[in-house]
Amino acid sequence: MLEGKVKWFNSEKGFGFIEVEGQDDVFVHFSAIQGEGFKTLEEGQAVSFEIVEGNRGPQAANVTKEA
């Protein structure tokens, strides 16, 4: 699992990017966010995740919000 911070997330469109120190930003789709209820992320929020190869390159999977 990697750790990063949410760079930005558009809850209307359901996607955004996660910043990872020393690496390129990683695309995140709302469907990759773990948990119940409305799936969104806040700018600057700490998250842990895995990287998988998507249709358009690397993207986040199994995203969990850090306490």
Rank of each mutant, 00 (worst) to 15 (best):
V28H: 00
V28D: 00
A46Q: 12
N62I: 07
F30D: 02
R56H: 14
E3Y: 15
F49D: 00
S11L: 12
T64H: 13
L41G: 02
V47W: 01
N55Y: 15
V47R: 00
E36K: 09
R56M: 11
K7A: 05
V52L: 10
A32K: 06
K7F: 04
T40L: 08
K5E: 04
G35S: 09
T64K: 13
A46M: 11
G4E: 01
N10Q: 08
A61G: 08
W8E: 02
G14T: 02
V26D: 00
F17M: 07
F49M: 05
Q59R: 11
V26S: 03
Q34K: 14
G57V: 04
E36G: 10
S11Y: 14
T40N: 09
A32Q: 09
R56S: 12
W8K: 04
A67V: 12
G37S: 08
K5Q: 06
V52T: 10
A61T: 12
F49S: 00
Q34H: 10
E66Q: 15
G54K: 09
E53K: 14
F30R: 14
E53V: 10
G22N: 12
I18G: 00
V20S: 08
E19N: 09
K39S: 06
V47Q: 00
K39E: 04
E50P: 01
S48D: 04
G4Q: 01
Q59F: 10
A46S: 13
V47C: 04
G37E: 09
A32L: 03
G14Q: 03
D25I: 06
G22K: 08
V28W: 02
K5D: 03
K39M: 08
K7M: 04
K13H: 12
K7I: 07
E50K: 10
V63S: 01
K13W: 09
Q34W: 10
G16I: 01
H29M: 06
H29S: 04
E12A: 13
E19P: 02
E43A: 14
G14M: 03
K13S: 08
E66I: 15
N62H: 10
F15E: 03
E12D: 12
T64R: 15
V63W: 00
I18P: 00
A32T: 06
D25A: 07
T40V: 10
A61E: 08
E66L: 15
V20F: 07
G35Y: 08
V52W: 09
E53D: 14
G44H: 09
M1S: 09
F17T: 03
V63P: 01
E42C: 07
S48M: 12
M1K: 14
F15Q: 04
F27H: 02
N62M: 11
P58Q: 08
A67G: 11
V28T: 04
M1W: 13
G22W: 07
F17Y: 08
V63A: 03
N55S: 14
M1F: 11
